[in-house]
Simulated scan of single mutants.
Amino acid sequence: MPDEGIQAILQIRRWLPHLPFHRLSPAEPWAASPGRAITIVGDSSFASLELIAAVRRYVRLVTRLRLDASLFAPPPPRRPGQRGPKACKGHRLAKLTAVLANPATRWTRVWVNEWYGDEGRILEIVSGTAIWYHPGLPPAPIRWVLVRDPSGQREPQAFLSTNLDDKPEAILGRFVWRWRIETTFQEVRRHLGAETQRQWSDLAIRRTTPVLLGLFSLVTLWAGELMGDAATAPQPRTAAWYAKPLPTFSDAIAAVRRAFWCPAELSMSRPGQATVEIPVTLLRRLVDTVAYAA
């Protein structure tokens, strides 16, 4: 993953040359407005010292951090006349597993609007800066954030940012935003066939995925318009083992299909007539079934 991740991130940097480069410390000035710097958010496969060393000067990287990662204090300043190579790290810090188990750890409670698709909840966090180091690999100055759920529903997790002056709440917020992007790509693959299309032309391959993502946006907008009418509003399709309080994309695309298949101007039956060839309730059930299966 590091090689592919490095190439992808540096390609994004080449695509957006007008945005400022990432600063490595609060004392280093930005080349332009700091609010538009590139932020890359990734899962645990992006938590690589090789990847961080290759991209940290170009982007801000936010990703997971192992609870048993080896963290160190910054190297002490060199004494006048001191010889030998410059130290890349200081003394060893307690691992995050020890911080988690230490009763003296001072936790801060924060409210998170959304946590892995769930509703907002209160989390407890503790944060600090350190040097993440492993023998044979370049050291990485990071800001780490340790998170635990007071309700005990989810396991404790740790995250990192290569920007040392990031606020812990901002790091969590950026990582939570990734959930929506992942869900979007998952729904596009499942319901619109992204990554399963078969073309021989390179141009067709490059065009298909953007078109499908655009179709996803159109379906979402059309479903939003249908929400204004109780008769056409997407209704969550639930099961005994899966209760949905709000419609998902499968409900949205089924509602849009029904709206296209049964436009009011093409309905020739009289409003008061209950049956034509089959009962109305059975016809609606068949249309709903096909709308989800199409």
Rank of each mutant, 00 (worst) to 15 (best):
P2G: 13
D3Y: 04
A8W: 14
A8P: 00
L10S: 10
W15H: 08
W15F: 03
L16R: 14
P17N: 07
L19A: 03
F21N: 11
R23P: 03
L24V: 11
S25H: 12
P26Q: 09
P29D: 09
A31R: 12
S33E: 07
P34N: 09
P34W: 06
G42V: 03
S44M: 12
S45R: 12
F46H: 14
E50Y: 09
A53I: 01
A54P: 01
R56C: 06
Y58R: 14
V59S: 04
L65E: 05
P76H: 06
P76Q: 15
R78T: 07
R78L: 11
P80V: 12
Q82G: 03
Q82M: 05
R83N: 02
G84Q: 04
K86I: 04
C88T: 15
H91F: 02
H91E: 11
L93Y: 02
K95T: 10
L96N: 09
T97Q: 07
A98H: 11
V99E: 02
L100P: 01
P103R: 08
R106Y: 01
V112H: 03
R121M: 02
I125N: 09
S127C: 07
T129I: 10
P138R: 15
P139E: 03
A140H: 05
P141V: 05
I142L: 13
R143G: 03
W144P: 03
D149Q: 07
D149I: 04
S151G: 04
S151H: 06
G152Q: 12
R154I: 00
P156Q: 05
A158I: 04
F159E: 03
S161W: 02
T162A: 01
T162G: 00
D166H: 11
I171W: 03
L172H: 07
W177T: 09
W177M: 12
R178T: 04
W179Q: 08
R180H: 11
H191N: 09
H191T: 02
L192F: 02
G193Y: 03
T196H: 13
Q197S: 11
R198K: 09
W200F: 10
S201M: 09
R207H: 09
V211I: 11
G214D: 00
L215P: 00
V219W: 00
G224C: 03
G224V: 00
L226V: 06
M227T: 12
G228Y: 07
D229Q: 13
A231V: 08
Q235Y: 06
Q235K: 15
T238K: 14
A239Q: 13
A240I: 10
W241A: 14
K244T: 05
P247D: 10
A252S: 12
I253D: 02
W261S: 13
E265N: 13
S267T: 14
S267L: 05
P271N: 12
V276R: 15
E277I: 15
V280A: 15
T281P: 00
L283E: 11
L286G: 08
T289F: 11
A291I: 07
A293Y: 04
